[in-house]
Design a protein around this nucleic acid. Structure first.
Lengths: 117, 117
DNA sequence: GGACAATGATACGGACCCGTAACGATCGGG
DNA sequence: CCCGATCGTTACGGGTCCGTATCATTGTCC
């Protein structure tokens, strides 16, 4: 059963959620950072810098810097892989899980409000 | 008729759309810029710097700078209001309308893919 | 052990954005 | 005409991010 949504509804939803994100003063994440964060929290671990870079189609420094920023915000953590010490495993945090959950609630709530658009 | 969507579906949708935005190499807009762009294209004109700042809960320079950037990208245009020459009216462009339309299509398409999640 | 590959981090110059504060231009009332 | 209010922009110091190139560390294979 596909999720049906019309273009006008999609845009209203997109706008309302972004408005809330901005007004709540939450971290003003870029599209890249959002994609990284959600990939970490939705896809099965383990996550590496290399893997994320490949999935997003960006270079490794982009991921490293995004992880630096999100690390400061407490949204993710890094840990060296003990089996292959070249790798770094990106781990989830409680704060990160809460932020993702809050985003989900925001989308659900506004979707409900929009209704027939 | 409310638009029903579950949290897990919302997150999948959010991730997929952001992944596409990043991979398409489109302008990597921040949450603020996205909110501004969609407000201009969804709400009734006229739009002013002051009005946008109030709606988003940010300061005026934030809007000015965002308009500078989007102007370079061809997404919006500015014009002085001839009736009150203190005001600046923000206008839509063909390129901006296309970008918004593309975003809508992206959301609709991924919503359809997700289905029962 | 040594050459080579792979991983993530760092250096660099340049661009953008932030918040606060000040600025020039314009309007409106006395 | 002038003073104050309003509008959008710009200046400033500080921070983040970009892409490219390079680096140190670690693993792999002969």
């Amino acid at each position: 059963m596909p999720l049906e949504i019309r273009p006008s509804q999609a845009l209203k939803l997109w706008r309302q959620v972004h408005l809330d994100l901005v007004r709540d003063g939450q971290a003003d994440l870029s599209a890249r950072q959002t994609a990284i964060l959600l990939t970490i929290y939705l896809e099965l671990p383990p996550h590496t810098v290399r893997g994320l870079a490949a999935q997003l189609g960006v270079t490794k420094p982009v991921i490293t810097r995004a992880l630096d920023t999100m690390g400061k915000l407490g949204l993710v953590t890094r840990k060296r892989d003990e089996f292959d010490r070249r790798n770094v495993v990106i781990q989830r945090t409680v704060a990160g899980a809460l932020a993702v959950e809050r985003l989900a609630d925001l989308v659900v709530e506004h979707a409900r409000e929009i209704g027939g658009g």
